[in-house]
Structures are given as structure tokens and as C-alpha cells.
Design a protein around this nucleic acid. Structure first.
Lengths: 218, 218, 218, 218
DNA sequence: GATGAATGAGGATTCATTCAT
DNA sequence: AATGAATGAATCCTCATTCAT
């Protein structure tokens, strides 16, 4: 039996224009998010799309380029959203809750994103993707400014404010990243609507408590 | 840069007893933490030790076994510490600060650990390592009990308490995991003593503010 | 001498259709027959075909699968021939000579077959290949029935008839299997037409003498 | 757990003199007979003895030498027996039955021998072992002379007599070689005493019928 | 745009063998 | 005499990528 495997799980019509590229990005996003860059074979991505590996090269020139494209498509909007929020937010209307809401909603509908970002974070930027390198800086700077201008400034030392931002980032992103393992170990699904609602409230409390002005007591 | 092609005639004495296995674990810990399982070649690990790849198999039967051993050696003590703390802690002496202090100190002296754990977390336990599977459950359960018995119980709903534990976990582990990328992007070193001190205080504040009883106001 | 290290830029056209698989089977048949499974390297097979080892995996998913395919292609027809003969033969036209003729002719034109089968026999079926496992049984059963229905039944005890079949099998297959060593030691070629003719007559005499009824007649 | 496997299945006393060499030969004989030369790892042999592979080199300088020693020890006596028989036998006392009896008895008590020889036969003498190369010639020549001097000479043409010898060889050796596979496929044990007795009688009949003079007498 | 076939570059692992203890 | 450790040489196999169809 010389035919090692039977592909074609998806009966896709031939010549599907740019939709194929989109399908590839979807498949790659899931693959990269689940297995990481090194753990993902081009053949895996192709199989998810229902084509053969060489066909991927009709749409993306290399595995690295595909990875970059996935990250750009997935992370870009989030970062843009964050940047825009920071620019428009002013002291009077300091409503971190809005940002939180928007972020959570976005992540909720793009469940692979946090894992993708976590993988890239772990790679230490050693790999590729100037996307993050170019955007992470401004976003963090903006986020710190945001904290600076908000009521938290009075409470936290200057050196602690970036750490506060980092902490919030980890609470938010880590929640989604942890979901699969958490489910496997505890049986509970962090991505379920009810769990997400609790996390939402938790985060709101965090923000209220941690970013509020100095407490009268202490 | 492990420089894989450089044999580096490390004149190590032939019969170096069990120290070689330890050296291999050290090298593997660093390699796995930095590059992940799939991104790490046995030859890389061997090169860091100063031996050739086949020699690794005199000490560990497979790459997976080596990975397991690394994880067991690295994660075991932390989990044990946590479990022990939970068992001995009682309400009267509820000093989460002690646990925090111990954890941070341990992670500080084992800088690869958090990245290692994060990699494994991302793998979703799909890979191997019953270590985590067997311990994560009890530890989380214990941590939740800890919260249960502490003053936080009055403030957070039952469904939120596990999320609170998760959040603290992410703030702590994420800090170390993020360090390399953070340094690359901002130039600042999160692992420096001063930064660590700030993070320590931040976490102490978190605990004080989030785990204290209900606030009289609001 | 397969000269494994010689790429031998056999200018074979790129897309050679299913002929490549056939060529691989040919090469593998010879290699496996001569050197056995363990003694055959995929690189050797590839070299005989004029390609590189990884290319083999475009046609067969593993060494074991290639081995299986070789055996199936080689042994299948023989067994089928035997089975068919047994089914169509009846007592009146009991002409074992026909079967003998057909078998010898087939083996003569597939000189690697007997060695291949011998290797597999030696492996005790421990390895793989349900081909043999599935066919050997029926074929032997059929052969015994053949003997049963023939005149030999009167002469040989029931317990000896399977051994008689075995004996004939060994005389036939062993002849071809022994050929290379015999040539090396004696200088004479058992596969030469004249030697084969003598063996043919020898076997015919065997059948006549051993399978005939009790000696009083004729 | 850096200790990959637990050896020492046999609690043998240290420093057991030349008995170790004998034990190694036993183990190697079984291993080589079952798995062939290429399929047998020195570690396998060592494990059967209850020692580690490097220790084998205290007794045999190489794998090839061990293989040679095994063959020499196993095959030597048979060949010697055959040669001696040929030299002492004369026409008047032409009792091939004696030779047959002796051979069968020897093979019966050395069940690995036939498979060992078959493996070597399949290797076509391409491998090593001048043992066979040096002995097979004389033995075959002697056997042919034996036939020459016996009553079979009148019945078989000169060119057929070597083939007759070969045939008998294959019937005898093949029987033992086939035993494991035969058992696996049919469930019956050719090495059982009863089966051996039947084969003995079968062979006696063969000799009587095939080696007797022209058919008119008896 | 899709693919079968091919391949160089690894990559994990095995193995025979050596050597110091 | 036995062995733990080490290693060069292979071996099977994977993978990203190319190219002709």
C-alpha cells in the first residue's frame, strides 16, 4: 500500500481564491497556538486545511512567514485597540473597565490568541516576529502612561507601576493560556461563559481595588 | 548560543560518577526552559555538558525521560513546599506572606523553573510528565483550601476563589517567564535584585489588599 | 556491492509515476532477499533505485511496510497459485507434476523469492507480515488435503502426511536458497538451466516414488 | 530515574572462570539462531548471561569472533561426525540409517543448530566464518562419494547425486528450522518427541526408497 | 493554485567497541 | 573479570522546501 495516508478531510472546491490563505491562517493559528512553532509541521497545517504541504507555499513563502502572518493577524488588532484606548483615554474618564471589557471580549472570541502570545513570550523574542518587538514597546509605554495618569499613580511607586501593568497582563492572558491544562486537571472549563463572567468580575475588583487612590487607612 | 558543532574538548574525567547525570539535568533544564521540548536537540544538551549526544543515553533512556527528570527535579520541591505550607498553616497564623517569600526565593535561585513550567502549561499536559498531572491537582486544591480558611473567604465568592489563586499564580510565574522578553524590549532586567524587591512588595500589597476581609467602606 | 556512498546521479525523470514504487519494490526484494531485514539499510535500497533514502518514504511509510509490500507482492502470487491448484485438482487428474512444474517455473523467474521466504521463515513470523501468517495456514492445509486425496494417502500415515508436505517444500525452496552458497563453495551454479533440469527430474522422481501407492503395483 | 534498566536476571557468582565463556556461547547461540547476526545486539547476548555488554569483550574479541566461536562449537561436531562416518563407511555396511540416526539425535539435543546454519546459509557465506567454507566442501564431497559407493549410484545419474544429497540435507535441516513458524501457524510442535519419531520414520523411508537400487528388486 | 516526487539537513536512537576503574 | 561512561558510525525517519507537471 504505497499511499501512506488519506488526506482530504475537507471537501473544498479547487481554486478558492484568497479564502485559502485565510483558511491556512486559521489552521496555522490553531496549530501554532497548540503545539508551538517547533512542534508544528507544515504538513499538520496543510492537513487541517485539507491540502498538501507544498500548496502552502503558494500562499506563504516560508514557515516563518506563515507564523509571522498568523501573529500579525491575531495580535495586531489587540495591540491597535490598546494603543487607541490609551491615546483617547483621559484622566476624567479613566475607565479601565472599558479596556478590560474590550480585551476580554476579543480574547474570548479568539481563544487561540493568548496561547499564541504566550508561546512567543516564552521564545523570548529570540525567534522572529518583529510584530511583537515593534508593538510591545509602545503598548507597554502607553499602558504605563495610562497608569501614570490614573489614580494608581498616587498609590504605587514609579518603579512598581510597570510591574502592576505586567501583573494585570499575566492575570488576563494567563487565564486563557491555562484553560486547557486546567480543564484536564480539574475538569472545569475556564472558557465557559459562567467562568468567564466570574473572571470578569474578579478583574473588575482587581482594578477597583488596586488602581484606586491611596486608602485612607494603613 | 550553544554552538552545537563545537565539540569543545572539555577535559572532563572519564568516570565522573553521578555528577554527570546532574550536569545533564542542569544543561537540559536550561535548554528546555529556553527553547522548549521540541526546540531542544539532544545534541544541544550534550554540547552544554561537554559530551556527545549518545552519551546522554547512558544516563537517561530517552529525550522524554530526560525532560521528565528535569521537570520532576525542578518542580517537585516547589510543589512539595506548597503542599507542606498548606498543611501546616492554620487560620490564626495565616501568613500568606511567608509562602510568598519562600516561593519567590526559590524561583529566584532557579531562574529556569518558571519558563519550564510555562512551557509545560502551554503544552496543555498533552505531552508527558505525570509529575504535573499528579501534583497540580492537589496543590491547587490545597491552595483553594488555604484561601477558604483565610480572610479572603468572606470577600470572594466560592466560584471566584480558584480564579483568585490562578491569578496570583500567573502574577508570580508570569513575572519570571516574561523577564527575557521584557529585558529585550525595555532593556530593564526583571531578575535584578531591585526589580525583584519591587515585585515582592507589589505582591505583598496584592495579598494584603485582595485577601483581607471585606472592606468596611464601599 | 551496492556502494551505499555513491549517489550515482541516475538521471531519472522527476515524475516517474508509479514505476518508482515498482522499482523500489524490485530493489528492496533483492536487498531483503540477500541481506535480510536487519541487514538491509534503507539507504541501500534507495541506492539501488538511484534515489536518496528519504524519497523512499514518499512511497512506503516505513521500512517494515516496504518489507511487507515486498513479501506480499512476491509471495502472494505463489500462494494464490497453490491454493487455486488445490481447489481445481481432483483425484482423477491427480497430477502433482503440474503443480511442481508451475512452482519451479515461477521460482525460476523470481530468484529472490525463496531466500525472501526463508528469511521470513527463520524470523519465525516473529516480525511482521500477516501475509504469511494468513496464507501459510490455508496453503498447508490445502496441500495436506491434496496429499490426502492422492494415492499417497494409502502409503503414509496420517501424521506423516504433513511432514511429507514439509519435506517437499524444503527440497524445493531449499534448492534455490542454497544456490549462492553452493556456487561459492563448489563453483557450480544451481540456477543454471541444466542444473535446474536435473532438479526438475529429481523432484519428479521423488513425487513418483514417494506419492505413489504401495509398492506392490507398478 | 537515571538507571534505564535493571539487569542481573541471573545471580551468577563473580569470577566464574571459563564457565562464563561457555555461558556466553550458550546465550549467543540462542540469540544468533533466533534473530540472526544483524538482528542480535551484543547487549542482548550479555543480558541473557546476566552481565553487561563490555564484559563480553573479556572473552571474545568481537561480535564476529563470538559468532564464529558459536558456529564452530555448534557445527564442528556435526561435520566431524559426518566426515568420520563417510570415512569409515564401506559398501557392504551401507547403513545410511545410522548416520541419519546420529544426525537427528544430535540436532534434537541442539535445537538451535539448524537455525544457526540456515542463517549462515542465507547469508551466502558472504559474511564470515571460514568454518563452513572450509568444511562444507569436504563434507559435501564425502557425502557424494558415499552416495557414489552406495546402491543409489545405479539409480541416479551422476549429475543428480549432489542434488539428492542437497535434498536430504534440506529435508533434515529444514524440518528443525521450520519448527517455530510451524508451531505458530498450526499449533503443533515439530520438536515434540512424537513428531520427531514420525519424521525419523519418514526419513528412513525416504532413504530406503530413494537410495535403494532400481525398483525391480527388494 | 495544487500536488507527487525528491532531497539536504537534521534528529533521536542504537550499537559495537574502548578505556579507566 | 566486570562495568560505567563515552563515542564514532550508522540507522530510521521527519521536515521544510523545491520543482516539474
Amino acid at each position: 500500500m504505497p499511499t501512506p495516508s488519506d488526506p482530504q478531510p475537507n471537501v473544498r472546491p479547487r481554486g478558492s481564491g484568497p479564502e485559502t490563505a485565510e483558511a491556512i491562517l486559521d489552521a496555522a493559528e490553531e496549530a501554532f497556538a497548540t503545539q508551538g512553532f517547533d512542534g508544528t509541521a507544515m504538513r499538520d497545517v496543510a492537513a487541517r486545511v485539507g491540502i498538501r504541504a507544498p500548496s502552502l507555499y503558494n500562499h506563504f513563502p516560508s514557515k516563518a512567514a506563515l507564523y509571522s502572518a498568523v501573529l500579525e493577524r491575531g495580535v495586531g488588532p489587540v495591540l491597535q485597540m490598546l494603543l487607541q484606548f490609551v491615546e483617547t483615554a483621559d484622566e476624567t474618564a479613566w475607565e479601565a473597565g472599558d479596556l478590560l471589557e474590550a480585551t476580554l471580549t476579543h480574547l474570548e472570541s479568539h481563544p487561540h490568541l493568548p496561547r499564541l502570545i504566550s508561546h512567543e513570550t516564552l521564545a523570548g523574542g529570540q525567534r522572529l516576529v518583529p510584530v511583537l518587538r515593534d508593538w510591545v514597546g509602545p503598548v507597554f509605554a502607553a499602558a504605563e502612561q495610562l497608569v501614570e495618569r490614573g489614580p494608581a499613580a498616587e498609590r504605587w511607586q514609579a518603579e512598581q507601576r510597570p510591574l502592576l501593568v505586567l501583573a494585570m497582563y499575566h492575570v488576563i492572558v494567563g487565564y486563557f493560556t491555562m484553560a486547557p491544562l486546567y480543564r484536564e486537571v480539574t475538569g472545569r472549563d475556564l472558557l465557559a461563559a459562567s467562568a468567564l463572567q466570574h473572571q470578569r468580575e474578579l478583574l473588575r475588583t482587581f482594578i477597583r481595588v488596586l488602581f484606586e487612590g491611596p486608602k485612607d487607612k494603613d
